[in-house]
Structures are given as structure tokens and as C-alpha cells.
């Protein structure tokens, strides 16, 4: 396993996450795709950290995970308030403003 393997894996996961956000229309699935993007970042950081023999990449991962947790709390709360008002979590039906 070389560094390139890890980078390729992370690029694939990042690509899946990015496509998910852009293509899927269910807000929960979009949200999960966002988490995938952050996980790709974590894989990258861990791989570089090991390769460079520097710890700050791994410390960074802890930060990213903490922030992702906070984001999950806020994001789910926003989705719930939306669902209470509109009874939908489909991104295409969230279209009060057009264009």
C-alpha cells in the first residue's frame, strides 16, 4: 500500500460524495454525501500524516470530526424545521425562490 492508493481511495470517495450532493434530491441523502466528502478529507489527512511522519494531520482529523458532528446537529435541526412546515425533504420542492 503506497500513498497513492490512499489518495486514490479518498478521491473516489470524495467524488461519490460530490456527485451525491449535486445529483440526489433527498436532503438527508445530500447530507450523508456531505459527510462522505469530509471522510475523504480525513483519509487524505491520515495518509499524508503517516507519509510525512508529522502529527498535525492526525490532530486535524479530530477537528474535522468534531466540526462534522456539530454540523450534523445543526443540519438535522434545519431539516426537521423544514419538514414541519412543508412536509417534504425533497430539495426540488424547496423552491420558494426561483432562479
Amino acid at each position: 500500500m503506497t500513498l497513492q492508493h490512499y489518495l486514490a481511495l479518498s478521491a473516489i470517495i470524495f467524488g461519490i460524495g460530490m456527485t451525491g450532493v449535486l445529483v440526489r434530491r433527498n436532503l438527508i441523502v445530500m447530507f450523508m454525501s456531505l459527510e462522505l466528502m469530509l471522510n475523504a478529507v480525513n483519509i487524505n489527512l491520515a495518509a499524508f500524516s503517516k507519509y510525512l511522519h508529522a502529527m498535525n494531520g492526525q490532530v486535524f482529523i479530530v477537528f474535522v470530526m468534531a466540526v462534522a458532528a456539530a454540523e450534523a446537529a445543526v443540519g438535522l435541526a434545519l431539516i426537521i424545521t423544514l419538514f414541519k412546515n412543508k412536509e417534504t425533504i425533497n430539495a426540488d420542492e424547496v423552491n420558494f425562490f426561483k432562479g
Binding site: 436532503l27 499524508f48 494531520g57 443540519g75
Partner: peptide, 29 residues
Amino acid sequence: RSNEAGIKYFIIGAFSSGILLYGLTYVYG
């Protein structure tokens, strides 16, 4: 309208942070 603003800001804000972070890992590497 406020719900919609919050959701849109959240999805796109988190998306842009993800892109920034992914770029950041390469700069770090």
C-alpha cells in the same frame, strides 16, 4: 422562506467547506 434559506445555506456552505478542506489536504501533503 427562512427554512429554505437555512437549508440552502447549510448544504452549500458545508459543500464549499468540503471543497476547501480537500484542497487543504493537498496543500498540507
